[in-house]
Design a protein around this nucleic acid. Structure first.
Length: 922
RNA sequence: ACACCCGUAGCUCAGCUGGUUAGAGCGUCGCCUUGACAUGGCGAAGGUCGGUGGUUCGAGUCCACUCGGGUGUACCA
């Protein structure tokens, strides 16, 4: 084996082996366990969030596979309507073409072509992460099977009255020329203005002042509204004003919607271009005047002067013209929420169109019940509140999109405006006994989330009642981020309940969002993104800088990003390897909502890999080609205390890991393994094995017992670690398993370690804790007194209990070797000790005679500090015990424990004070 | 405005149903190339757990209020 761990040289090799051998597919036996991957966007590439999420799923899947479950991890990608269409349109634009030049069919062919060539980036990257989904069953939300499922769902919902077509205001994206759902609109505060206009009353008796943030919409005003109880305006209700610039006479109406306190208490009403005004307009039967075209330029419904103007140009013009007429009262600075499309970034317009909607009310009811009664459980629980809040106030879902890439809506129209929904034109003609009147299919496609909502059952072959569907649906858990609870989770629950009559998954594990080490969201514009692949393979500073600043238009932004990157990563990124990256993810997967990714952590876990690697080297050096007494029926070996202890701790560790995984606490699971491997197996057990293996004291039986334990504990630990670090565990396991007499082609297929409670040895644990404490006490003195680690020193023991005596005898050799002692000698209780530095383990005094070794001042300082600490704590405890209420009300066991502690600590203080006095007397 | 989350060592975070002297990693300071590992070993320093009040024998942990940071939802033209 290499002296240091080299991730790059093992990872691809093992991945290929696993995939080639079909290890990722369900075994076909055992309790079913399934996870459906949240399908990543086909245009996407792996970001830190994906890395985190996929690592979690992979750990779960590998764990269950090793537990012998019939495990399916369903993989696939999402066709991502708008995103994909934009990518291909951008490519066309480079050749000076638009999709319209190509036409619908040719364009869609082009998208498919693009998907075949470039759509595989993210799945390749998933492999780099060591993800083990069943690639043979990979799906795409636009593949044939999915096409049928989506069609079927649409048709059935339509027939059941849960899908309808309606002419309403939608969120219109004037750049992408499509409607989008309210979830795809991001409203953020922006600086704007509030214009105050005077509207003249038609009877010439004066003016009303209205305020608006969007002056251009006044061209579409059809009323002015006031509050019915507002005394200022009561007498005006029923009168009309003459709309300036337009000349239209519009009514003054009264409606509770108007807040008399806000602004002037008069509101201009533009029902065709504002959601609130629309509703008010419905109540008062106001006409809708649509003044915008699909580009959000003004149409022919406005006076000629404004026709064809862009909405923002029109805004300027309207303001200027009103000003000229003396109707502009004032302009205030005003901060307002501006709605923008999450894809295009342009301001969204409420616009009147025909769209398809899902009637969500009845579906939501069921979906709420499923979570209320526990058929679906959110982890952590509090996300259920978010889910309920949205579900209980759900709006109908606009599912049509004016795109070319996506599932075309299976609806046809005849020339009389009749709508027919069905699988094909042929079917529709047949079913409706239509003559050969012309039919044309709806031009629109469905919201991508509509097809994603069918993911858990669509991927398993629905609408066919497949065997897989029976076995693997519902899936066990959905692993996802809270940002798509509404977009996806909720909709998936609604549609799956409706069509499958069962939940899509039993649990939803909601993980946090990966941010940078300062808690900032990673984004390209901030230039703080980390590419998981770069953390695996490493990247030079220059390349990192150019990657982060690529395509940056603003030079000042570019400069800032470059500066920040050079400061944060002066050496670029080292090649940490997949296992280290994954382990970092797990260590950060606590219950919080934000996961701040600090490169310092991954470096620590790369070192951890190296530690494992070198521990394995040590074990192999001492076991390969030797008798490890591992064969079946082998009895020719003997175990010592250290062996019982490490095996015992391994059982306890397995139990905590298992418990943590069950609670999705990957941070706790990873920490338990980390501590076991580093702080117990490496720091102590390997050291404890050396005196046995290298010394002359132990006989061959003991040596065999030690080798057996070294190799078996390592082998078991590798299996425990495998779901988290698939590569390094496989690489080492291949060499270790045969020595431990464990057969199998891959650690992936080996059994996950189970805690054997019978092997938990409380006495061995206590004995080793004692041994560690004594060694630590000596090391502490050595460290503080600057005694060179190599120098062997004599130790005197005094005032020990029977246990102390037994332990010191039984572990004599280990104490000598690990604490580097020259000798151990017991003093009689009354025997006068030579001047020494002192350590305490319980009541046992550990004395290192000074004899030229000890720095008097240092020892005084050390003792004083120690006494101070003990006294402070003693005081607290005595105070507690002096409180009659504590003694009376606290459980007796607690009181008793406290008493005992006070007793031993008081003695300890006395001892140390005596020591201090004698040192000071020197 | 409402809801939720977070606030623990210089930094990034644990601390499960309240009960040892509040832990880890990174960083810092000593010492050490001891035959698995300097991507290492040994030792040490570092925290009035955001604040106030309450419940309790006992609060980092439960409750109320408050300050600071964040997210989501609803928004008034």
């Amino acid at each position: 084996m290499e002296k240091t761990y080299q991730p790059a040289s093992i990872e691809s090799h093992w991945y290929d082996t696993w995939e080639r051998n079909g290890y990722f597919a369900p075994s076909g036996s055992g309790t079913p366990y399934s996870i459906m991957i949240p399908p990543p966007n086909v245009t996407g590439s792996l970001h830190m969030g994906h890395g985190f999420q996929e690592s979690i799923m992979d750990a779960l899947v590998r764990y269950h596979r090793m537990k012998g479950h019939n495990t399916l991890w369903q993989v696939g990608t999402d066709h991502a309507g708008i995103a994909t269409q934009m990518v291909v349109e951008r490519q066309l634009a480079e050749d000076g073409m638009s999709r319209h030049d190509l036409g619908r069919e040719a364009f869609v062919d082009k998208v498919w072509e693009w998907k075949e060539h470039s759509g595989g980036t993210i799945t390749r990257q998933l492999r780099r992460l060591g993800a083990s989904p069943d690639w043979s069953r990979e799906r795409f939300t636009m593949d044939d099977g999915f096409y049928h499922a989506v069609q079927e769902v649409f048709i059935r919902l339509y027939r059941d009255g849960l899908i309808y077509r309606g002419n309403r205001l939608v969120n219109w994206d004037p750049k992408l020329h499509t409607a989008i759902s309210d979830l795809e609109v991001i409203s953020e505060e922006e600086a704007g203005k509030m214009w105050h206009f005077r509207y003249p009353l038609s009877d010439g008796s004066g003016t009303l002042t209205v305020a608006t943030t969007r002056p251009e919409t006044m061209l579409g005003d059809t009323a002015v509204a006031v509050n019915p109880d507002d005394p200022r305006y009561q007498q005006l209700v029923g009168k009309t004003i003459t709309l300036p610039l337009v000349g239209r006479e519009i009514p003054i109406i009264a409606d509770d919607y108007v807040d008399p306190q806000f602004g002037t208490g008069c509101v201009k009403i533009t029902p065709a271009h504002d959601f609130n005004d629309y509703e008010l307009g419905q109540r008062h039967q106001l006409p809708l005047i649509n003044i915008l075209d699909r580009d959000a330029a003004l149409n022919d419904a406005v006076p000629e002067a404004y026709r064809g103007m862009d909405r923002f140009a029109a805004r300027q013009a309207v303001v200027a013209d009103l000003d000229r007429l003396g109707l502009l009262e004032k302009v205030d600075e005003h901060v307002l929420k501006v709605p923008r499309g999450d894809r295009s970034g342009v301001v969204i317009e409420p616009w009147l169109t025909n769209q398809w909607y899902v009637k969500t009310g009845p579906l939501a009811e069921e979906a709420i019940a499923a979570v209320e009664d526990g058929r679906i459980e959110f982890v952590p629980r509090q996300w259920e509140n978010t889910y309920f809040a949205w579900m209980r106030d759900i709006q109908d879902w606009c599912i049509s999109r004016q795109l070319w890439w996506g599932h075309r809506i299976p609806a046809w129209y005849d020339d009389q405006g009749n709508i027919y929904v069905g699988r094909s034109e042929e079917e529709i003609r047949h079913q409706n006994q239509l003559d050969d009147r012309p039919l044309c299919q709806d031009e629109d496609v469905l919201d991508t989330w509509f097809s994603s909502a069918l993911w858990t059952f669509g991927t398993l072959g629905w609408p066919q009642q497949t065997e897989l569907l029976k076995i693997f649906h519902p899936s066990n858990v959905l692993v996802t981020g809270f940002d798509i609870i509404f977009f996806w989770v909720a909709r998936m629950i609604m549609l799956t309940l409706y069509f499958m009559k069962e939940v899509p998954f039993h649990q939803v594990y909601v993980h946090g969002l990966v941010r940078d080490s300062h808690g900032q969201k990673m984004s390209k514009s901030k230039g703080n993104v980390l590419d998981p692949i770069d953390l695996i393979d490493g990247i030079g500073l220059e390349e990192l800088v150019s990657k982060r600043t690529a395509g940056m238009m603003q030079p000042q932004l570019r400069e800032r990003i470059e500066k920040m990157t050079r400061a944060d990563f002066p050496q670029g990124l080292a090649a940490y390897g997949t296992d280290a990256l994954r382990f970092t993810y797990y260590s950060l997967a606590s219950t919080g909502r934000d996961i701040n990714f600090d490169v310092g952590r991954i470096e620590g876990y790369r070192n951890f890999c190296n530690k494992i690697w070198n521990a394995a080297r040590y074990v192999l050096m001492n076991t390969e080609g030797m008798d490890c007494a591992c064969g079946a029926g082998q009895r020719d070996y003997r175990l010592g205390l250290a062996e019982h202890w490490i095996v015992s701790r391994l059982q306890e560790t397995s139990a905590s890991v298992e418990k943590a995984i069950g609670q999705y606490r990957f941070d706790l699971a990873s920490q338990a393994i980390y501590e076991f491997i580093w702080n117990e197996y490496c720091d102590w057990y390997l050291e404890l094995s050396k005196p046995v293996l290298y010394g002359d004291e132990a006989d061959q039986e003991r040596k065999r017992g030690t080798r057996r334990t070294l190799i078996q504990v390592l082998e078991t630990t590798l299996r425990l670690l495998h779901p988290f670090m698939p590569f390094i565990t496989e690489e080492i396991w291949q060499r270790v398993a045969p020595l431990a007499d464990r057969a199998g082609d891959s650690i992936m297929l080996a059994e996950f370690p189970q805690c054997d409670a019978q092997l938990i040895d409380v006495r061995a644990n206590a004995d080793i804790e004692w041994l560690k404490a004594v060694i630590l006490a000596v090391r502490n003195i050595r460290g503080e007194m600057n005694i060179p680690p190599g120098r062997e020193i004599p130790v005197l023991l005094k005032n020990g209990s029977e246990d102390d005596q037994r332990r010191s005898v039984q572990n004599h050799e280990l104490l000598i070797r690990l604490a580097k002692l020259a000798s151990i000698e017991w003093l009689e209780p009354r025997q006068l000790a030579p001047d020494s530095a002192t350590g305490l383990v319980g009541n046992l005094e550990i004395l290192v005679p000074i004899a030229g070794l000890i720095d008097k001042t240092a020892e005084i300082a050390r003792l004083t500090r120690e006494i101070g600490k003990l006294n402070q704590d003693l005081e607290r405890k005595r105070g507690k015990l002096a409180n009659p209420a504590f003694v009376a009300k606290a459980p007796p066991a607690v009181v008793d424990k406290e008493r005992k502690k006070v007793e031993t600590q008081a003695q300890a203080v006395t001892r140390l004070e005596q020591q201090l006095a004698s040192i000071q007397a020197l």
